[in-house]
């Protein structure tokens, strides 16, 4: 009896701990999101009543996010960057999957580790190293030949390359894992039926990979959208959303419009994450 009661108490305590953990996990998110609806100039208690002004109002001092030109521009740049990064990383990730699963590449294990390395390099280091190299290269070209290559200077292309440098590892891992599960007999059957290489690739192998490619693309999009460390060093005059928001938080102080943006981003990324989960779930049925 004694041990049973001790066990019961232990399990209760354990459950309590788990519940407390989830409260800890949710608290800042709830705080960041809920003040978007507070009818006050400051994101703080007391609660002044419900409002949607921080989304839709078009006049100062309560300028809503959908009328705030700088925030909208930031959102646009973030979107452009994220699309570029996810297209590039899914392409390279797919190539890498085939490279590591299908070919007899010499020193495969070594290259596989090399592929993982970008993920464990701190983002700040990736940012400064790419900035340093691009600038040295651009300066060298300018001094020697008088050629000015704008894309090597801080700006959108460099941000895309910087984020791509480690996000490609994530997409490669996701797509490689999927390709490893592929049953080679399906391809053999198609060859036996007389299909060409290209046809087998486009009608059998790529459709099999599609869920993983979509999921990897969504992950890449989200990671790019929320990236800060690498972007900080490579950004030019076109600030993506995270940089714009950070500047406001650090310098001006903040109105609940930042909460509105936070709420918007949470809903957006939550929806995308759900899509990626649903897409991935399909694979159990295949």
């Amino acid at each position: 009896m004694g041990t049973a009661r001790a066990n019961w108490a232990f399990l209760l305590g354990y459950r309590f701990y788990v519940a407390a953990f989830f409260v800890f996990l949710a608290a800042p998110l709830i705080a960041a999101g809920s003040f978007a609806f507070n009818d006050s100039l400051f994101p703080a208690l007391p609660w002044q009543g419900f409002t949607l002004d921080w989304f839709f109002n078009d006049t100062e001092p309560k300028l809503g996010m959908f009328h705030d030109r700088r925030l909208l521009r930031g959102l646009y740049y973030s979107f452009v960057i994220a699309c570029g990064v996810s297209a590039l990383s899914v392409f390279v990730g797919t190539c890498n999957a085939f490279l590591f699963v299908r070919t007899d590449l010499p020193a495969k294990n070594f290259f596989y580790i090399v592929m993982i390395v970008p993920l464990v390099i701190p983002g700040v280091i990736l940012g400064i190293s790419i900035l340093a190299m691009a600038s040295q290269f651009a300066n060298g070209l300018e001094e020697a030949h008088g050629i000015e290559l704008g894309f090597l200077r801080p700006g959108l292309p460099l941000v895309v390359l910087g984020q791509f440098s480690f996000i490609a590892t994530i997409t490669s891992l996701v797509i490689t894992a999927r390709l490893r599960k592929f049953d080679a007999t399906m391809e053999e059957a198609a060859y036996n039926l007389g299909a060409s290489r290209l046809r087998v690739l486009t009608t059998i192998t790529l459709p099999f990979l599609r869920p993983a490619m979509i999921a990897a693309g969504i992950v890449a999009f989200l990671v790019s959208f929320e990236n800060f460390n690498t972007t900080l060093f490579l950004v030019g005059s076109e600030s993506p959303l995270t940089i714009t928001m950070f500047d406001r938080m650090a310098k001006v102080g903040s109105t609940p419009v930042l909460n509105a943006v936070s709420f918007f981003l949470m809903i957006g990324s939550g929806a995308l994450a759900l899509v990626s989960v649903l897409v991935q779930r399909d694979r159990t049925k295949v």
């Binding site: 800042p28 998110l29 705080a31 960041a32 995270t242 981003l265 949470m266 939550g270």
Partner: peptide, 14 residues
């Protein structure tokens, strides 16, 4: 999937 920035912002508000 929620940016570090928003999570830190939430902590600041708390």
């Amino acid at each position: 999937w929620v940016s570090d920035l928003i999570r830190a912002f939430g902590w600041i508000l708390l």
